[in-house]
């Protein structure tokens, strides 16, 4: 009982972060059919920039956070401009690898500028555990799922319920027709990449006080988030969020019962099984496709 509460606390927390980063994959995929495989590195970038500005340079944390997120957005724009657009324009799938390479370059640049050893991003919410139902937990661990889920649903609402969201969907479904509606497709796609990077940056800022900040913070995180995006159905915001929470819970559950040595083995087997049963993800649906 005790353990299960604790597990769900951390499971939901990490899960909502997977969901947030996965939502970043969703946003760019929905708009352009491409994703930024350097998402994991952007998670790191958010944390590293906040550390560098807030701790190393001693700026006030709010300013550091805003600038860190702006930095992430800028990186998102660069990725789109330099690593995605040139290849998409030539009808090549090499953007896939170009963004992976971009992630490698970013990781290593951070390694040599930020430093090689892991650091700790201080947070008033992650110093003293509070006791809930007999279990110690950092306040941040409660804040994370709340912020994560709220943010995710806000984005989903924008996509589903506003005209702006429909513009994004229109670009995704038929870019040429969207141009004919007066929509600036290039700028829309660039904005999607920036937004996607900001989401990853927020996730990085939120988890950094729990993890240690190092140049490798986001690598595995990015892969898991991609798995979450796929599992949820990369075209469905709701599916992606739910899949994130589910993934977090399953991961925490497996770790608690079988031990963390089996976590990846079990979780990735579950992914294959899930995709076999639902080839378009949990809530993804096959596109309208007439023969």
């Amino acid at each position: 009982m005790l353990t299960s509460i604790l597990v769900s606390g951390l499971g939901l927390g990490l899960g909502s972060m997977y969901g947030l980063v996965a939502l970043g994959f969703h946003v760019t995929y929905a708009v352009s059919g491409t994703v930024n495989f350097a998402q994991g590195s952007v998670v790191t970038l958010g944390a590293v920039l906040a550390y560098a500005l807030g701790v190393t340079l001693g700026w006030p944390m709010p300013a550091a956070i805003v600038l860190a997120l702006a930095g992430c957005a800028l990186f998102g724009l660069v990725v789109e401009r330099a690593l995605v657009r040139p290849f998409v324009a030539r009808g090549s799938d090499a953007w896939l690898l170009a963004t992976v390479a971009g992630g490698i370059v970013l990781d290593n640049t951070m390694l040599f500028t930020f430093g090689k050893e892991p650091r700790s991003l201080p947070s008033p919410l992650a110093t003293k555990p509070v006791e809930i139902l007999g279990t110690g937990i950092y306040p941040l661990q409660l804040v994370i799922p709340v912020v994560g889920i709220a943010l995710a649903f806000a984005i989903r609402t924008v996509f589903r319920r506003t005209d702006l969201g429909r513009v994004l969907l229109a670009v995704a479904q038929n870019a040429d027709a969207a141009r004919l509606m007066g929509i600036d497709v290039r700028r829309t796609v660039a904005c999607a990449f920036a937004l996607s990077a900001v989401l990853a940056g927020i996730a990085g800022l939120l988890i950094a006080p729990l993890f240690s900040v190092s140049a490798e913070l986001g690598t595995l995180f990015g892969i898991k988030a991609f798995a979450v995006a796929i599992l949820g159905g990369i075209g469905s915001a709701t599916g992606v969020i739910l899949a994130g929470l589910l993934y977090g819970l399953v991961e925490a559950g497996v770790t608690a019962t079988l031990g963390s040595t089996y976590t990846q083995l079990v979780v990735f087997s579950v992914i294959i099984l899930a995709l076999t049963l639902r080839p378009d993800g949990l809530l993804g649906r096959a596109a309208v496709n007439k023969v």
């Binding site: 595995l220 925490a252 770790t255 990846q264």
Partner: peptide
């Protein structure tokens, strides 16, 4: 004897 993975962040289950 409990084990953890190098990138684990929560060892509470093992420690419990």
């Amino acid at each position: 004897i409990e084990k953890y993975e190098a990138n684990d962040v929560d060892m509470v289950p093992q420690l419990s």
